[in-house]
Amino acid sequence: MNIAETGVAKSPLQKAVGHLTDWEGFLLAVLLVTIIANASMSDVFLTVNNQINLFQLSIEKIIVALIMTLIIINAEIDLSVASMMGLAACAFGWLFHHDVPIGLAVPIVILIGALGGSFNAFFITVMGLPSLVVTLAMLIGFRGLARVLVEDRGITDFPEWFDALGQQPLIGPFPLALLIFFALLVFFIVVLHFTGFGRYVYMIGNNKEMAVYSGVAVNRIKATLFIASGTISALAGILFAARVGAVRGDVALGFELDIITMVLLGGISIFGGRGTLFGAVFAMLIVLNLRNGMALANITHHLQTGVIGVLLILSVLLPNMRGMIRQFRESRASAKS
């Protein structure tokens, strides 16, 4: 390396790597260890099919986790996402059963998602209620509406091309949902890390009062995020219906906890203002690879969930312990001098 090179402007990739915090470096290491361990345990792990399959199995969760990352960085939370996925899937099934063409049903359902998100946003921004409370109530409310629509039936007779869209590769080996995930990932990375809107998201998450007094349209940004969350959850619900080829009242039940776990594992602070989408993506990959690897090793689903629970606690405990040790050393050093 010569001196001239250091003067060259950093490429976006180098910038992105520069953004990585210690924690994200740690996640990357965990991810590499997981992949190597998985690859050495199973021959099929590194095949393209398994890699795509690994994404496909939780594709709806990781799509919603993208917008959840922005919401948590904004120091809010949306517990209603999984119920909205369920409501969207059931509304789609209901419309389909009432002879609405799929080409029309999809935009209607996405509109329902936007409306549900606006409903949350209204109570959070205009009424000033905590998002934890509002979205908890809607976790119950949206799920209830989903059950009203399909009752205890299951809707499975979607046309073949629709199921195929959810299950078969669309371009090359990639199915539609995976392409949507990558498109949204790029979109949100740009929005969060390279636009003024993204800076405001961080600013509000760090200190809402300061943002208000700096003239940031706090409520408008919060409302945008919640409406986006409802919309994307509805889209994820339709993708779920297409992938599974069936809709029931309990579609995506309990997904909100998995989604939030992925985001928090990615080093995004639950108090807002800290963390990046890169961390969230590493955490998604870790969760997906761990689950896939453990499934290949015949470890039960419940035990997998327990392991991820432990990982979640460790993800905050380890950096905390490092801070405590540093503090302890400093206090000893200052006591000596």
Binding site: G306, G309, V310, V316, N320
Partner: peptide, 23 residues
Amino acid sequence: YARIPAIIVTLGTLALFRTFLVE
């Protein structure tokens, strides 16, 4: 004592305690 936000700890133990039960 370890100063981890309650929502993270109990989200983790929500899964962990249920795993204990299943095992």
